[in-house]
């Protein structure tokens, strides 16, 4: 529609949008600047004369060096990646199969099982972390990656199932029926016809599941204890803060590097991520 004069477009659309973008992205800019700023500049009070918030003239890699040489940051990255990838794969496997069953098969209690999945989708991790910690200990999984790989699916599977149900429901049932008449068993029809068609949905679920695992904090905080087992988020929190001394430079460098894998995955699959995100709220 016609939006009126140029000045109206600026006042009502462009300027607000620019402000939004600025506020939403500024913390990342701040993160980047801080991680390259030498300590001398870093710890200069804001009301000092030579406080220079938005730029640094002496960029340094010192904080990154500290991260890799004085802490297990490399290990944390590898741990997080391993945990995120494996738990995502497990969740995709379970979620795709369960989503298929709930969306396309007729069996007793199909409807109520769908509701159960939706309800577990809504169970927050913070509700169960204390008893889970006990169970993890009973299973002798404490302080191993498996404590997270096996528990992350509790929030990833319901999510994947829910999302996949939407994708599966959108596939005409005739395709599957045709395959079965063509000589495929139900199992093969699912494997060769329905799942390949649902690949975009699987990608979306996978990407979001990956970012969710990478983002998870409280289980990792509670279940892991030794420095070399930690994930990035937990490692950064516990090893770069000593008492009330914050190693801000390295902290920001760690936050920056810890965000990179998610950002890369996200940038490659923005469309899938967005369609998954919006698909997940369609209900």
């Amino acid at each position: 529609m016609i939006e009126g004069a140029l000045w109206r477009r600026w006042v009502f659309y462009n300027i607000p949008l620019i402000l939004f973008v600025f506020v939403l992205l500024f913390p990342f800019y701040w993160m980047i600047v801080t991680s390259f700023r030498p300590d001398g500049e870093l710890y200069r009070p804001w009301n000092a004369m030579n406080y220079m918030p938005f730029w640094t003239n002496k960029p340094t890699l010192e904080h990154f060096r500290y991260l890799f040489e004085e802490t297990d940051f490399g290990r944390w990255m590898v741990n997080t990646m391993f945990i995120a990838v494996v738990s995502t794969l497990i969740s995709l496997f379970c979620g795709v199969l369960a989503g298929y069953a709930l969306a396309r098969l007729n069996f007793p209690f199909a409807g109520s099982l769908g509701t159960v999945i939706f309800v577990t989708y809504l169970v927050p991790q913070t509700l169960l972390f204390i008893p889970l910690a006990e169970i993890i200990r009973d299973f002798h999984l404490g302080d191993t990656p498996w404590s997270l790989i096996l528990t992350y699916p509790t929030f990833l599977i319901p999510f994947c199932t829910w999302l996949m149900m939407g994708y599966f429901k959108a596939i005409p049932k005739e395709l599957e029926e045709c395959a079965r008449i063509d000589g495929a068993s139900r199992w093969k029809a699912m494997l060769y016809i329905i799942i390949p068609i649902a690949v975009p949905g699987i990608l979306s679920s996978g990407i979001i599941a990956f970012t969710l695992s990478w983002n998870e904090f409280i289980y990792a905080l509670v279940f892991l204890s030794s420095p070399e087992q930690k994930t990035v988020a937990v490692g950064v929190t516990s090893e770069l803060i000593r008492g009330d001394v914050f190693f801000w430079g390295s902290l920001m460098a760690g936050a920056l590097l810890g965000s990179v894998p998610v950002a890369i995955v996200y940038s490659f699959f923005v469309e899938h991520y967005v369609s998954g995100l919006t698909g997940s709220v369609k209900g």
Binding site: L24, P27, S267, Y273
Partner: peptide, 23 residues
Amino acid sequence: VRAFILLPFIIPTVLSTFAWKWM
């Protein structure tokens, strides 16, 4: 713009929150 706007939601909360704490 749409892709960049989602960043606060994508980046691990703990890490971006540290940036805010520092701010």
